[in-house]
């Protein structure tokens, strides 16, 4: 999937992946896609909750070798 920016949140625990995601989205424009890589299994539910509450779209989420990859499209 194409993306405009990547955030490496590996090794970070709650709530850092969410806070860094929010920060990364701040200087992006509407429609751009942020790729987030996380190793925090709690971020699977939290990223969806973040998307639901902020209006950004969680385009996809996958797991690969203990890493969670999210594509978040900015509102």
């Amino acid at each position: 999937m194409n993306f405009d920016k990547e955030l490496d949140a590996r090794g970070m625990n709650c709530p850092l992946p969410i806070l860094k995601t929010k920060k990364s989205l701040t200087d992006m424009v509407s429609g751009q896609v942020l790729k987030v890589i996380s190793t925090d299994c709690g971020s699977v539910k939290d990223m969806q909750a973040f998307a639901d509450q902020t209006g950004n779209t969680l385009v996809s989420q996958t797991e690969e070798n203990g890493e969670y990859i999210f594509f978040m499209q900015k509102k």
């Binding site: 709650c14 709530p15 806070l19 902020t54």
Partner: peptide
Amino acid sequence: FILASTAAALG
């Protein structure tokens, strides 16, 4: 601090 920072991130 966790709840405050996260809530702020959620708007």
